[in-house]
Design a protein around this nucleic acid. Structure first.
Lengths: 151, 151
DNA sequence: GCTGCAAATGAGAATGATTTTCTTATAGCT
DNA sequence: AGCTATAAGAAAATCATTCTCATTTGCAGC
């Protein structure tokens, strides 16, 4: 709760600085986001928030996501289905591995891959601004001690 | 033209094998795709093909793209704007670098990055099925001989 | 070359995520 | 408390993509 409140306070001062208001709805959505440990989409956020405030509308969720994103408070990702998913941004940069069977999203980060990307862009005469990296994988069975290969 | 015709012939036999038909429309769309050296979206393909056959409909383009994709004849990519873009698939695997200023798409490939991705997935207990890598960059001015750093 | 029919097409309606419009409510300053 | 610009709610609009359905067309067999 403390962590959530800290995030909310930080965001509130960011808003203030931009001449924007801290509303009940924004507070609520921010709380939902801070408490989420997955990557919910707009409807998912709406559903969770709606449980606490049944007057909330989906438009407000979308609008709020935009504000939050423009303030750098959240990150938006669109995986293969094209639907935007959100996560709060106060963590180090990371990429995503998506389990193709379950849809589960696993976060990872690799300095080596970041560096490699920068070098590739440079070789093409570009300065890397940002990137999108998604790995789609299937869970491997744990290694056997002396396994026979199975077809 | 020869290359285009070869692609069309190959695709026709693929279709036949799947019990599907080679229609005028599919031939036309395939030709448009084979002649494209960029990454057009459905509307772009439609526009180019429509010039050759004004009875063509956009639905047919979408339907055909699905068939082509399921036969492995084309690849579909959705960059940041979420719109599907297509390119013919008879080339080695590659990733894309998008010029954030011009929108230009540059293709590149790197065995090192492929390998690194595979390793990262493996470390997380996954077998890499596929991946999506897009670099967004800005053109760097050509290096100066003894340049002073500019802000 | 004709027939039959399953597959494909064209035109437009339907879908689904997201954005916009417009009217009403409210945050935050005085 | 009162003012006013920003925000919210509800519903309509948008836009890419898919679907429906009536009509057309490949193509296999005669």
């Amino acid at each position: 709760m403390t962590e959530t409140d800290r995030r909310i306070a930080v965001f509130e001062s960011q808003l203030k600085g931009a001449g924007l208001r801290m509303t009940q709805q924004r507070r609520l959505i921010l709380r939902v986001l801070a408490e989420a440990d997955d990557h919910p989409d707009a409807k998912g956020i709406f559903t969770r928030a709606f449980a606490h405030d049944p007057t909330l509308s989906l438009s407000t969720v979308y609008r709020t996501m935009k504000v939050l994103e423009s303030q750098g408070a959240i990150e938006r990702h669109a995986f293969e289905d094209g639907i935007s998913r959100y996560e709060h941004a106060d963590q180090e940069h990371h990429d995503h591995l998506i389990d193709v069977d379950s849809g589960e999203v696993i976060e990872f980060s690799s300095d080596a891959i970041e560096e490699l990307q920068r070098r590739i862009a440079a070789e093409l005469g570009y300065e890397l601004v940002r990137h999108r990296l998604e790995l789609y994988g299937r869970k491997k069975p744990p290694a056997r001690r002396s396994g026979k290969k199975k077809s």
